[in-house]
Design a binder for these strands. Structure first.
Lengths: 125, 125
DNA sequence: AAACTGTATATATTAATTATACACAGTAAT
DNA sequence: ATTACTGTGTATAATTAATATATACAGTTT
């Protein structure tokens, strides 16, 4: 597994680790149940404290990208577990509700709203 | 004009001032072109530094709730619906961005997303 | 027992936020 | 024009939050 720390970056170390691992999971470079390097090994490689790698892994677990087994290690979580999907759907619904309220406030038509969504989706393909 | 500072509150002083004045404007207790107390007078009344009242007023001006005339004072701005609309549009776009990210994470198709939006809109007619 | 795993608590460092002082510049009325 | 108000700009102190760390601990595997 390749990880680079950019000293120039303003992003904190734990976040750089978080993002890179997350991306590798999303892109498919890392597969379900793949073992991740231990927090100590990774810390040694990167020449940082293992508390920092721990923090990155904690965030990844919190967001459902990996799971950890005490005294064994950390592993890539199965993608789109039903739970994660449910959770995301709930979040999406909340955002949609907010949007509907806001749209009503400033008299944005359904059509215009649908177009904005369409545009954002195209942009993000 | 009534303003209360809550020492228990975790919200910073300038924010408490900002919020209370903003609310009084929205509710209609303060009217267009009403003069606000000078930053020094208000600071004296509240027994804080005038730099803090200045900051509150700065934020209010930035967000279009008041306008200031150098060496004269600060006044309630005419309600600018266009500005409010712009602001809401910006918020909507932020929500949409969040949604697109989440949808990508749990493999929600564009079509499904569009349907969710459609459903929420119908429900809220 | 030795060599690994992750965990928990306490702490130092750094960066951002919040609040302040003071010297300045424009306006208005005496 | 002098006095007494307005808001402005620059610099700085104090506080709080974010980031990174060390060290002692507990479970698993061989």
């Amino acid at each position: 597994m390749h990880l680079y720390l950019d000293n120039q970056s303003t992003a904190p170390i734990y976040e750089q680790i978080y993002t890179q691992i997350k991306n590798q999971i999303i892109v498919g470079e890392l597969h379900e149940n793949d073992a991740l390097p231990s927090i100590r090994t990774l810390a040694k490689d990167l020449k940082i404290s293992f508390i920092t790698t721990k923090r990155a892994y904690e965030e990844l677990e919190k967001d459902g990208f990996i799971y950890t087994i005490q005294a064994k290690g950390c592993y890539v979580a199965p993608k789109n577990t039903e739970l994660l999907r449910e959770e995301n759907l709930r979040k999406i619904e909340e955002h949609i509700d907010q949007i509907v309220q806001l749209a009503k406030l400033c008299g944005l038509s359904h059509h215009e709203l649908a177009e904005m969504l369409q545009f954002a989706l195209e942009e993000n393909k």
